[in-house]
Simulated assay, not measured.
Amino acid sequence: MGRRPRVEYSGAIYHVIQRGNNREYIFQRTEDKLFLLNELQKRKRLKEFLLFGYVLMGNHYHLILQTTGISLSKLMHLINSSYGRYYNKSRKRTGHIFNGRYKAIPIQNEQYLFAVLRYIHQNPVKAGICQRVQHYKWSSDIDYRDNQEGLVDINILLNMMSDNRAEAIKKYSAYVEQEDEEEYDEIDVLGDESFVLAIQPSKKSPTRKDLDQILRDTNLSSTDFEHLKRGSRRRDLIRYKVDYVREALLQGYTLKEIGENIGISATAVIKLTKR
């Protein structure tokens, strides 16, 4: 069975997981973890992404990030290639160090974003490495507790918790200590039903209608049909767009296909699913 193609769109937030080849250890030394963090910092200086959280474990790492000036696939290729070269050179070895491609889970909103942040910060505790989240050195938990804006973009999430920074950190600390039973690296999308449907469209039906026919079936007038095809932003046409998007997703069209047919972006298509 072929791999499911990744869905990427501008402004998306992802929970990224990269494991070592055959789950072998890829961070045996302090220098290894520092190299990856320095590589992330180097890419951050180029304003290519926002980093909301990370944890470096022995045989894998987690990132929560939002790309801004680069595609996720290119960013991960640059980071992993650089680390792979460093790792092989430092061990005088050759070959792959990562277990195939990374996994990237799209995150719909701040509710799921906070939950994933807690989940990755609790990784060392659940692995039996330490007893408390704050006892682990190689995660972004310390950035949040110590109010360190730099590699990690802590201000965005802390400001959501409170306008008062001391109160926000207190709320963060209490939240991250709560029990989290979810396994967020075992699913494909983090969001509500409409978001999941938009990110993971159903398989193509051999008898599906073409997109223009789906659009016509919303009972648009001929004039309004032409306006939508030219990318009209008229508010009175939104309800037709919503009906069109929902039916097109059910028939297995991708976000890109649906959006291009009426002159809107994949992000705009997702927003229509939430109406």
Rank of each mutant, 00 (worst) to 15 (best):
S82N: 12
D143I: 02
V55D: 04
R239E: 11
K204A: 13
V125C: 11
T207S: 06
I105Y: 03
L113P: 08
E181S: 12
P201D: 08
Y14H: 09
Q213P: 00
E149P: 13
Q213W: 03
I17V: 15
A127D: 01
R93Q: 14
I97V: 14
H121S: 03
R165Q: 14
R235I: 09
M160Y: 15
I187L: 14
R235Y: 08
R216G: 00
L211F: 09
L34K: 15
I169K: 09
T273S: 06
G259Q: 07
Y136A: 03
S71Q: 09
N123A: 10
P201Y: 00
K229W: 05
H121V: 01
Y240G: 12
E48K: 14
S81L: 09
K74G: 00
K204N: 02
I270P: 03
L220W: 10
I13A: 04
M76W: 07
R29E: 15
T254N: 00
R45D: 12
I64D: 02
D143F: 15
A166P: 01
C130S: 01
K209E: 12
L51W: 07
D236L: 03
N80H: 14
G69N: 15
V245G: 13
T267R: 15
S140A: 08
G150P: 05
Q213L: 13
Y86T: 07
I154M: 06
N147G: 10
I169W: 01
N59R: 06
I264Q: 08
P5T: 02
K92Q: 12
G263E: 08
L197E: 11
K204P: 00
F195L: 02
H77Q: 14
L220D: 06
K241S: 12
S194G: 04
I70W: 03
Q251V: 05
S139W: 07
N80A: 10
E48T: 09
S173Q: 15
R45F: 11
Q28E: 11
L255W: 05
V55S: 06
N164Y: 09
I26Y: 02
